[in-house]
């Protein structure tokens, strides 16, 4: 099944070379099953496509982000509608929209991946530790999470970013340092359930150390949840970052899709230059929807089924 998409098949080969490690095996199994479902295939392909763009976009883009396009007559091509030379037309200041779209994939991919990674790292560290260790540690960690829950994301982000400067990376950090809270809560409750299950006790009773139990038993059993939260984190970071760009609090010189939309809007010409604002908007929407749907179907497919045995009992 993996072989349908060349890059995934290579990825999966890489996995098998990495040995038959249980976590990798489980991930690969779930991925394989997921790609059996057609809609998930569509989302997955789209995400792979965005990642590829992020990788090679700037190289294959016909123009630089800041190349101002001039026509044969040497005039700046301002707000040209799509044509063969400029498939998505040009912007008000004469940038090639198509090139900017290709180039803009990278900041989008970076903000998504970085944001998602931070979110799930903090979220699972806090959630799993709180759930497994319990006691005072749990109290402190969960109070902290509650505190973060009280933080209104957008206003805080605006204030912080304005205060510390409008850097692109800073904006991602601010988002991620707030959004881990959801995954921490849910992972903690998952861990609370899992740690009472008898296979954990059996492992403890053989003398397995706590870190090893967490790594080998707890983590793999919440991994599907974690993957889902990672995907959702990616989606949220992208969309909130785009929102912040749109509000103009983020570095306007990083040519992300969000910044493109903002520029289109700021030009006061959105209504006229639809080719300028609609493509980045659609790309953001598709990317975000794909991450959400991909995350959900991963969770559904690989999370379900493990416990189905519990139904079949004597009688």
């Amino acid at each position: 099944m993996l072989n349908r998409i060349p890059i995934l098949s290579r990825v999966s080969e890489g996995f098998s070379n990495a040995g038959n490690h249980y976590a990798i095996r489980n991930f690969r199994n779930a991925l394989g099953k997921m790609l059996d479902s057609r809609m998930t295939m569509v989302y997955a392909s789209f995400l792979v496509f965005v990642l590829l763009l992020g990788l090679v976009g700037p190289w294959i883009a016909p123009y630089d982000a800041t190349d101002r396009i001039r026509g044969e007559d040497g005039e700046l091509l301002r707000g040209e509608p799509p044509s063969l030379d400029h498939p998505l037309g040009t912007t008000e200041v004469g940038y090639d929209v198509f090139s900017r779209m290709l180039i803009g994939a990278r900041p989008t991919a970076i903000s998504g991946l970085l944001g998602g990674t931070i979110i799930i790292t903090i979220g699972s560290l806090v959630g799993i530790t709180a759930g497994y260790v319990g006691g005072r540690t749990e109290n402190v960690l969960m109070r902290m999470t509650d505190l973060v829950y009280g933080v209104p994301l957008i206003p805080t982000a605006i204030v912080l970013i304005a205060f510390f400067g409008v850097g692109f990376i800073q904006s991602i950090l601010v988002i991620a340092f707030v959004l881990w809270r959801g995954s921490a809560r849910v992972l903690r409750s998952q861990v609370l359930q899992i740690k009472e299950r008898e296979f954990i006790l059996a492992s403890k009773a053989t003398g397995t150390s706590t870190p090893r139990i967490i790594m080998k038993h707890i983590f793999p059993n919440v991994a599907t949840m974690a993957v889902m939260f990672f995907a959702i984190g990616v989606g949220y970071t992208i969309i909130i970052q785009a929102g912040l760009s749109f509000l103009g609090v983020v570095d306007p010189f990083v040519p992300s899709w969000g910044v493109m939309m903002r520029n289109a809007y700021a030009s006061g010409q959105v209504g006229n230059y639809w080719w300028w604002s609609i493509p980045p908007g659609l790309m953001i929407a598709f990317t975000v929807v794909s991450t959400f749907m991909f995350g959900r179907s991963y969770e559904r497919i690989s999370g379900g089924g493990d416990d189905e045995g519990a139904m079949v009992q004597a009688g």
Binding site: E198, S203, T206, T208, R212, P220, N221, D306
Partner: peptide
Amino acid sequence: IIFQDPFNSLDPKFTVRDTLKEPLQV
């Protein structure tokens, strides 16, 4: 120890091999 509930006493993410190997490694 051997537990009561065979449906809960094995890690769903572990194969039989992983389950048996763990005590040996520990």
